[in-house]
């Protein structure tokens, strides 16, 4: 379970989990779940195109997810863009299927790109995955305060001199980097789960922003490690475990906050219970 190829799998998946935990925290905070869903789908076409013309998959992933991030940032200028973005997602998936239909390894390739293939990462790919991960985390830590400010109160942040538009673009680019490094490991369709679930669960357990971010990383690591172990032992695909453990932790988080609210509400009939949205 810890030798050769598997060791590479553990290492790559751990890097992905740490980055997903950090970046996911801000995705949930900013409510950009949609972008986190769209970018990996677009990257799928990139990876497929790269395999068609014989380039390294990571190049295709990087090019398409960065282009995707810039497209979403541009579309975001208009108020309602859900139709356009949904259509672009689908077009990218269609393009990916076209590219792959032209290669000889149609179906297995589709499967591993969409649902992940943790054993498909070679030790030579660890270096680019690690470097991209470091860049993503460094960028988030550097932007932490203005990113937090513009997520919580965009108008006030803009008034205080935060370039909120630039923050948005920079953040989407970080999501693009995360996508690039994570697609080969967990797959385009399940990165979403790894980005959202740990962060969403973490914020049910703590009110401290940095604490929630750290907890999100821990939950992401726990998710990925148990997914690999279970996948190794049961011989079932890793994506299945990532998806269901993610849903499980989110459910546990919601359950915990509901329980805590009930406990708090009974002795202290204060302002909290008066707010309709909170009590429900």
């Amino acid at each position: 379970m810890f030798s050769g190829l598997m060791l590479t799998a553990w290492e790559s998946a751990s890097i992905v989990a740490v980055v997903a935990g950090v970046v996911g925290f801000f995705i949930v905070l900013r409510g950009s779940a949609f972008a986190a869903h769209a970018l990996p789908n677009g990257a799928f076409a990139g990876a497929a195109g790269a395999s068609l013309i014989g380039v390294d998959a990571i190049v295709g992933l990087a090019v398409f997810s960065i282009l995707g991030a810039l497209t979403i940032a541009a579309l975001g200028r208009r108020a309602r863009h859900d139709v356009a973005t949904a259509l672009v997602i689908v077009l990218m998936l269609g393009l990916g299927s076209l590219f792959l239909s032209m290669t000889t390894e149609y179906a297995p390739q589709i499967y591993s790109l969409l649902f992940g293939e943790v054993l498909g990462v070679s030790s030579s790919e660890l270096v680019p995955i690690g470097v991209i991960g470091l860049v993503a985390i460094a960028a988030i830590l550097l932007m932490y305060r203005p990113l937090m400010f513009s997520s919580v109160m965009p108008d006030v942040a803009a008034a205080r001199g935060v370039r909120t538009r630039r923050m948005e673009v920079a953040f989407l680019l970080v999501v693009a980097l995360t996508t690039t490094m994570a697609v080969p490991v967990v797959g385009a369709l399940l990165i979403f789960s790894l980005l959202i679930s740990p962060a969403a669960a973490a914020r049910s357990f703590t009110s401290r922003p940095l604490g929630a971010m750290g907890l999100s990383v821990i939950i992401a690591l726990a998710t990925v490690w148990s997914a690999i172990a279970l996948s190794y032992l049961s011989n079932l695909p890793i994506g299945f475990f990532v998806g269901s453990i993610g849903a499980g932790t989110y459910g546990a988080g919601r359950g915990f906050s509901a329980w805590r609210r009930n406990r708090q509400a009974s002795p202290r009939q204060s302002s909290q219970t008066l707010q309709p949205g909170v009590a429900g």
């Binding site: 779940a33 649902f115 399940l190 959202i196 695909p237 998806g243 993610g246 989110y250």
Partner: peptide, 19 residues
Amino acid sequence: LATGIVLGAALGLAALFLY
């Protein structure tokens, strides 16, 4: 967020069944 989590779990199931 809830939709996204359900979506993730469903895609995980899809990965299992397709496998």
